[in-house]
Design a protein around this nucleic acid. Sequence first.
RNA 1: CGGGGCGUGGCGCAGCCUGGCAAGCGCACCUGCCUUGGGAGCAGGGGGUCGGCCGUUCAAGUCGGCUCGCCCCGACCA
Length: 414
Amino acid sequence: MSLLFAPTMREDPQEAEVVSHRLMLRGGFIRQLSAGVYTFLPLGWRTLEKIIRIVREEMNRAGGQELLMPAMQPAELWKETGRWDLYGPELVRFQDRRGRDFCLGPTHEEVITDLARREIRSYRQLPLMLYQIQTKFRDEIRPRFGIMRAREFIMKDLYSFDRDVEGLRVSYQKMYEAYCRVFSRCGLRYIAVPAESGVIGGDVSHEFLILAESGEEKVFVCPSCNNATTVEEAVCPQCGGFLEEKRGIEVGHIFQLGTKYSEPMKAYFVDRDGKEKPLVMGCYGIGIGRTMAAAIEANHDEKGICWPISLAPYEVVVIPVNMKKEGHRQAAEELYGKLCQSGFEAVIDDREESAGYKFTEADLIGFPLHIIVGERMERSGRVEVKLRRTHERFEVQKDDVCELLEKIRKELLG
RNA sequence: CGGGGCGUGGCGCAGCCUGGCAAGCGCACCUGCCUUGGGAGCAGGGGGUCGGCCGUUCAAGUCGGCUCGCCCCGACCA
């Protein structure tokens, strides 16, 4: 860690009020460049990549194929769907040197539909699911809460193409399940609720919310049948029990678009019966950065972040209590090496700081597992393994550390 | 966009109301000594011209105007 670029802060920066924003700044995960525009520092980027990896694996598993579309998009496309005017000032617009209108994509229905109409001819090419993980731009009325509502943010957006509504339902269901897997794997408590479809449009839509005290959205959850809704009156028909009011952060949204874009953009295919029909589409988004923020909102304490192990920038930190003592240093280095070899994502806090300083910082950053190498090691060859979230402590012979951590990791991953 | 708040070394703040001639405190940073199981101690040191512009005044961080930026509340959203 002596060389890790993770500039931590002892005090709360005055611009940050929300927990996740505060902890990400203090822990050296992000830095702000402008309102709603952030740099992800090495720790922040590692966590982001953890989320991205999980999302990518689940999208692929569900049949999605990854591609990458341009952020820079010509106005003509947006005029075709009418959104050049409808989207409003939130759309980041600019002109190229020749005075042609462009925007930075806040979403990619137009671009993907354009691609589809050029390339999809036959029902034999369907169903198809294409997705990307990419930076989006929305000039938010009011960026807020750090990366929770940013003007530039990373989003996974997947688009499904089917022959008919039946097919769309199948694709939608697959995505619904994929989303459940994504958020479970992120170690988050989520809930899916039927939702309004807003500017994106379409008929059926669900929001995925991470349950957290600080959530902006009210949700009503039935504890027995686990159904949820954003409208109080809609009592779970299944059991008719009472509803618990909770709060959630929207991290994903899936929509059945139908032919809302394919029709105006003339994205047709030839069906088995030889007739030309509009593609039946769905779109499915996940806010990657927002998921990270939500994970912190839902997983922290007075001392700092308590990362779910699947999202932690590193799984384990090895802390030699006193770097000046050869014994501590050597044992810590040896352990660190072994952990890396055993496939752990580890760091060693080899700074010549006081033990207290290193403990405090390890808590702030939120490494799920701490290994403390101190006097006990000198006397008995034992080191201490500590769990960040539960404060559980284990004393083990240093040769048994890897084995113990394997076990703990397995448990933490559920 | 409406309402509120804030801009003073890297971070957190004081000073501003009641201009005054040395811009200060804590943390961080650098050097040395010492210390290392919960953000150690001592000594020495470097760094700001007070968001910007215009004005008032003998004199502006302090007063006035304009402007830029950031945060919070509201209407919208991954």
